[in-house]
Structures are given as structure tokens and as C-alpha cells.
Design a protein around this nucleic acid. Structure first.
Lengths: 203, 203, 203, 203
DNA sequence: CATGAATGAGAGTTCATTCAT
DNA sequence: GATGAATGAACTCTCATTCAT
């Protein structure tokens, strides 16, 4: 039993190592420029070895994609102890933005990339994403019910909120704000988000 | 002189043909899946010929990138005859969103792609982009001065606005809204933008 | 002794299981498309295990090759109770053709494949094959002696007979008769063989 | 004009060189063991070059397959000046057998290989083959009409003939007759075929 | 001006086999 | 006896790019 357990653990560690390395390379050079071979080189294994842990390249991307959504969802959960729904929503937005900025390649995979992994498209593999979206929507809904936000179709307000934070993250990590001096960025980002939230508040 | 002039003109036409064809292919199949060879095939020239008009693939992308910004800027200009600055801003947003949805591959190049063209990053090649941004910022500024929007740092409000419309476009064209039934999309998009603009209005 | 005996028996059973499974896969998908790994997967052992029972892939093929000849020889024996040598020969031909059509992958290994197993070529590993050939030759010889077939060098007449039935089987199983409608095939096959036998009969 | 002509010629020569080299390698080592790379190595070009002349591996095989049928058909035509249909048939058989023995890899591709080239299977790509078959059938038919062969269904007699010569060729080139001393082979082959033709003759 | 010919580099993937445990 | 882990060597194929003509 001890043995099989250890085996299992080692296997998981190897998968982890591969994913971690892949992510690191992706971060450094962008998805498009990273091949299975390069990942293998980096961890000093043969390319064939990777196929012992992942069926194909798709599966690696898919695994990372899921990892990303898990992380994001976990972050969202941390807001649950905030009573005031508007403040909770506010916090959610901040966490979302920070997550994106700090994990640009996860974010890329989750929300930007033209999906290279067929699996992600094909099946109803958006569960994890939808879960997060649902969580957000519920929060928006609560805000409205509590009279903290102007009434509107929940779907629309939620999308509006999401569009904003996504816009912020993706403009930054795709380097469309290079003219803004780096030291200003945090101010602009926070300011921009707060500006939106502020106006969202019921008048 | 007549000769050199004609030469120049022909050269431009050829460049135009290449760019046009490239864009058509990009649109149909996505950047990643279009090779120089395929572009060459389509215009029925040899791949080598393309190198007579463009230094390399990057330069094609860069040219298209600029083309996109020209188009966008031209669109923006059409709002100039709207007197009310808020309405003008509103219109600008709508035009921006439509531009993105209708020209996803230009949009991709301009605002999403991890800069494929080194040129775009390296040199201060954002002029065209900045011009558009400046135009937008002036409009926001005007709104504030006219008391039509809550006061705030202009930079911040502008970025906030941009983030929103960019968020909308990029979530859609990168297919992160596939769960939303296609026939609903226009409603959500317009609703979401209007929702934001509505709350932006000074209370 | 009991122990070593049991061991021996188990070993044989395992070899049998491997061979059986391999053959099943070969039949379903053709030799070229079956890897050791897939055989291992099917019997739910590790690939490495197979190497405990067979030196390499070749040895598996060689074993199956022999199995095939055993089966064919056994079939031939069933004709021994036919007194009339010509009828016996006739029956032998029919059995041969049926064997080939019903066991295309055995047949493939025995008579068509470019020897995959070096072993088959190298050593004088044709014993089993020769035994069958001898059996056939004796039958032909008997026919001539009994005046039922035109006199000729036995070697030649035998080879002629073999060539014919082999031709029939191999054209069919290698799908060189796809233009013949499937429902006609049996008629053509039997007809063709009978036609030859009929003319073989002494006039 | 001279130039394009020369170009065309050179292109054909290159295709020829590739096909020839491929065939040589196939002959030496069997289809299964020859890769595009090895062909490229042998002609001292890069693998990519081959793709300038052939769409993919399939196309090479398909080209050779056709070449083979062209050659065979051309051989058949040489019998046309033989008046006596039975003698003509006899000659056809000899030519067929010789063709197979002298061009084992063409023969392999045409009549033995489990087709690796999808093209060969899919479309009605048997035209060339059927043409040859038709030619043979007509000859058989003529023999019957002339009372030189026993009456029978033409289809059946033709198939019987084909099966025989195919049997002879394929047993030899797939080395199922290794026990027969090489110097005897020609005698056996000719004898076997003549034996069959002799008995085919109307009694 | 245009191109045909060529290629180095590299992609993802599969396979038979080995070996320490 | 059985295996999990690993791999070297191979595969087909694509791409951006160059250069002599």
C-alpha cells in the first residue's frame, strides 16, 4: 500500500513538474513558441516521457486551463465572508484583476487564447468557467436586490462588470499600455476599476 | 519621373494586394493557420515575390496593424459632427465595438495578439494607436468639463471606458461567450455598453 | 517437480494468451497497425511483461507463424479418410482456400508477409511448412500414379496446384478483387478452383 | 519557351529520380522500412524537397503504382501481333510472370501490399488495373470462342488464369520457395505455368 | 521584376525495447 | 514474476526564408 501510494504521489509530482515547467516556458515565450520538445528539454527528459503523463499537447493545455479556473474559483471563495454584497463584488473584481496580472499565462489560456486545445472547445468543458461566472452573477444579483446597484438585467450588468475587469487585465498583459509608465500602472488600474464601481453604485 | 512614379504606384498596388489577401486569409482561418506560402498561392505569385515587397512576415503584420488603426481613426472622425460630447463618446464606443466585431482579425492584431511584429514593440510604433487614444481622451475630458460625467482623473476615466469596450469585443471574438445564445448577443453587448454609459452619466 | 511443472504450464498459458490476443488484434487492424504496447494493453499486462515470454516482437510473429502451419496441417489430415486421391486433392484445395479466407492474418504471416521474423528466414524454420507441402505432393503423386492426372514432374504439378490456390486466396484477402461484387465472390472462387481441377483431370 | 520546356523537363527528371530512388530502396528493404527521410538522404536532398514534387508519401506510392500498371499494360500490348489467341494468352502469362519476378516491388505495390496509399483504395483508382484485366479477359474469351479452351464462364476462367500466374509470382517474390534451389526455379516456374496451360487446352 | 528550387529547423507523435525495483 | 518509468530513434510533415537565375 505504501508503495502504490508513493507511486501515485510520484506520478502526480511528475505531472506537476511538467505543468509547472510548461507554464514557466509559456510565460517566458508565449504559448505559440513552446513545443513539447522544449518542455521536455527543460525538465531534462525525453519528449516521449511526456506522453506517459499526458495523452498529447492538448491535454497539457487543458490541464493548465482547468488549474487556472480552480485557482480563480478558490480566490472568489475567499470573498464569501464579506457581508456587504457590493463590497464583496468590489473585492471580487480586485481579486480577478490581480489574478490576471499575476498569472498572465493562466489568464491567457483561460480568457484570451484562441483555443488551441480542441478539448476545451468541443465538449461542455466550460463548467469550471461557468461556475465562476455564476458566482459572480449571484453577487451582482444580490447587489441589485439590496438596492446597492441600479436595477438592470442581471445578465447584462454581470457581463458589463466582467467586460470591464477583463478589459483591464487583457490590455495590460497584452502590453497595450506600454506608453503608460510602469510606476503609474497600479494607480490607473485601481483607479479605473474603482471609477467604474463608484458609478455603478446606486445614485 | 513618369516612370519612377508609375513604378512607385505599381509597388503600392502590389503591397495592397498582398495585404488584402493576407487579411482575407487571416479572417477565414486565423493568424496562426496562415503561412506566407498560402498567401502567395492565393495571389498566384511565388513566396519569394512577397519578400520583394515586405522584409519579412513581421512587416506584413505591422502594415496590417497600421491599416487597422487608420480605419479605426477614420471611424472615430465620423463622430466629429456630434455636438453633445457625451453622445459623441457614446457613439465612439459603439463604433469601436462594431469595428472590433466586424474586423476581428484587425482587432486581434491591434489589441490582442501578443505582438507578433517585433517592430511594433521595439520602436515607438504606437503613434497611430496613440492618436486614437488621444482623440478618445479629449472626448472624455470634454464630457467632464461639460459636467456630463463625474469628475475624475481623465486618464483614469478614459482607460476605464476603453477597458470596457475592449473587454466586450475581446470576450466575444475570442469566443468566451459561447454559452450565450447567438441571437442574444447583440442585446447583451448593446445592453452592457449602454448600462455602463448610463451609470457614467452624472447623477 | 510438481512446482516446476505448474510453472511450465502457467508459462505456456501466458504465452497462449499473448498469442491469442495478438492474433485478434492483427485480424482486426492488420499487422502494421498493432504495436506491442497495444497487445499488452489488451491483456492488461505491461509491455515489459511480454518480454518475459518472448524475446522480441519477431518471436511472437514466429510463434504465430508456426501456429498457423499447425492448424493448416491439422486440416489437411482430415482429408485422409477420402480414398479417391483426386477427390482428396480436391478437398485439400478447398480446405486450403477456406483456411486462407477465414484466417487472413495467419495466412498473411504464413504466405504473404515479407518475413517479418528474421528467424523464419535465417534458420531452417520451414519444417512445418514443408511438412504440409510434402503431404500435398504425395497426394499429387498418388493421383498421377492412379492415372487420374496427366503425368508430369510431381514437383511441377504440385507447385502449379499450390500456386493456383495461393493465387486465389491472396488476391482476395489483399483486396485485389474489390470490383467483383461481394455476393459473387464465392461463386468465382469455387468456380475458378473447380475449373482448374476439372481441366487437371486426365482427359 | 525553351526555358519553360527545360524547367518542365528538369522537374520531370527530379520526380523520376525520386521515384527511382524510392523504388530502389523499396526493393532493397521493403516498403515498410523506407521512410521519406531515407529517400531524401539517398538522393542527397532535404526531406522538405521531396514535398516540392509530391504532395505526400501517398502520392509517391500512388505514382509508382500507376507506373507499374503502365509498364504491365505496355508489355501486354506487345502480344497483339500474335494471331493465335491461345498462344497470345500463353505469351501474356509469361510476360506477366516475368514482369513480377523482375520488378518485385512494383508487383508488390500493385498486387500484394495491403495498400498504404489511401488514394489507391478510395477513388476508382483501379482503372489502369481494370484495363489490363479487361485485356486479359478478352483474350480468354477469344480462346473459348475459337474452341481452343473448354467453355466456361469467362469471368471464372480469367480469374483462374490470373490466380495461377499471381500465385507463382507472389510465392516466389515473397520467398516462400526458398527450399527450391535457385537454379531449379526457372524450370519449376515455366513448367508449372506450361502445365496449367497445357491442361487448359481443349482436350 | 519574379521565381523555382531548396533547405534547416522544428513540430507532434509513436514504437520496440531496457532496466532498476 | 511483473512492472513503471524511461528513452533513442524514428516517423510524416510544415514553415519562413534564401539565392541563383
Amino acid at each position: 500500500m505504501g508503495i502504490t501510494e508513493r507511486r501515485e504521489k510520484e506520478k502526480k509530482e511528475m505531472r506537476g513538474l511538467i505543468l509547472e515547467t510548461a507554464m514557466k516556458l509559456f510565460l517566458e515565450e508565449g504559448f505559440e513558441n513552446v513545443s513539447l520538445r522544449r518542455i521536455a528539454d527543460k525538465i531534462e527528459y525525453s519528449p516521449a516521457t511526456i506522453y506517459l503523463y499526458f495523452k498529447d499537447k492538448d491535454e497539457i493545455l487543458y490541464a493548465l486551463h482547468n488549474e487556472g479556473f480552480e485557482k480563480l474559483y478558490a480566490l472568489q471563495q475567499t470573498t464569501l465572508d464579506i457581508k456587504d454584497p457590493l463590497k464583496r463584488l468590489w473585492k471580487q473584481g480586485e481579486l480577478y484583476i490581480n489574478f490576471g496580472l499575476e498569472n498572465p499565462e493562466y489568464y491567457n489560456l483561460m480568457f484570451i487564447m484562441r483555443s488551441p486545445a480542441k478539448k476545451i472547445c468541443e465538449e461542455n468543458q466550460w463548467e469550471t468557467g461557468l461556475r465562476s461566472y455564476g458566482f459572480l452573477k449571484d453577487n451582482v444579483s444580490e447587489c441589485m436586490e439590496a438596492g446597492l446597484m441600479p436595477m438592470a438585467e442581471v445578465e447584462i450588468a454581470t457581463f458589463s462588470f466582467w467586460a470591464h475587469v477583463h478589459g483591464v487585465v487583457s490590455l495590460i498583459i497584452r502590453e497595450r499600455c506600454v506608453i503608460i509608465p510602469e510606476e503609474f500602472l497600479p494607480h490607473i488600474i485601481k483607479g479605473s476599476f474603482d471609477f467604474m464601481m463608484e458609478v455603478f453604485k446606486k445614485k
